[in-house]
């Protein structure tokens, strides 16, 4: 079990740990405990969402028609692909393939930026249509088929809160992945000697993907509660 055989391990092993196994296990468990907090963090918002949506099903359906499910779908595919790239980047890190890792991390970053660009397009569209809640909330009434605009505002409140927080997580992800990529680029031992730091960033990024997996159908693909009308998307 000992890693004493690796000569340069001391640079990577922190002084509080006995060996690399202990350190790596601690890192992985630590990351998961962090993700537990993230789950609860978003869980509260999903709870609020579910309560209000159950209450205002019809108004929210009308409000959700303002969202473009195609753009959301592109972003879903985008995040899925970046998640895949991240997973293979971890694999390349296990193989100590520096070039492979860098290539894939660059791909992940590109996807993340793409995600934010699409998000920006969506947000600015909402803003132009005065759909941002608050004093400037003045939507074109004809789009809402008589729905209660208060509830529409509530919908957009949660929409901006939840996708916004997710967006912040994507931003943090970009920073972290960028930092990781830089370390790989410079060939720092802390990342090249052991794949676990890359794995940790990967775990975070997959979690960001998971949040979107729920956000997408909940916000963009609502079924129509009204009788007899067709599917969820118009």
């Amino acid at each position: 079990m000992s890693h004493a055989a690796h000569g340069d391990e001391f640079n990577v092993l922190k002084f509080q740990y006995e060996d690399m196994d202990q350190q790596n296990d601690s890192y992985i468990v630590g990351m998961w405990t962090f993700l537990v907090t993230e789950v609860m963090f978003f869980g509260m918002l999903f709870l609020t969402y579910s309560l209000y949506r159950a209450n205002y099903q019809n108004d929210w359906f009308t409000a959700h028609e303002q969202l473009d499910w195609k753009l959301g779908g592109i972003n879903t595919a985008n995040l899925l692909f970046s998640s895949f790239l991240m997973a293979t980047a971890v694999r390349q890190a296990q193989l100590k393939d520096r070039k492979g890792v860098l290539l894939r991390l660059a791909g992940v970053l590109a996807c993340a930026f793409g995600f934010l660009v699409i998000k920006y397009v969506e947000y600015s569209g909402k803003y132009e249509h005065h759909l941002f809640p608050g004093p400037g909330f003045a939507p074109d009434v004809t789009h809402f088929h008589g729905a209660n605009l208060d509830h529409v505002q509530l919908f957009f409140g949660l929409y901006f809160a939840m996708t916004g927080l997710h967006g912040v997580h994507v931003l943090v992800g970009i920073l972290v992945i960028g930092a990781l990529g830089l370390m790989w680029f410079k060939g720092k031992k802390i990342v090249t000697e052991d794949y676990v730091p890359t794995e940790l960033v990967g775990l975070y990024w997959h979690f960001v993907d998971i949040v979107w997996i729920f956000l997408y159908p909940l916000f963009y693909l609502m079924p129509n509660p009204s009788v007899g009308s067709g599917g969820g998307n118009h």
Binding site: H145, G146, A147
Partner: peptide, 15 residues
């Protein structure tokens, strides 16, 4: 407080 609002929205609501 809790109810499903489950209506046909036909005409625009007068605001």
């Amino acid at each position: 407080w809790y109810n499903n609002d489950y209506v046909e929205s036909a005409t625009p609501r007068i605001i």
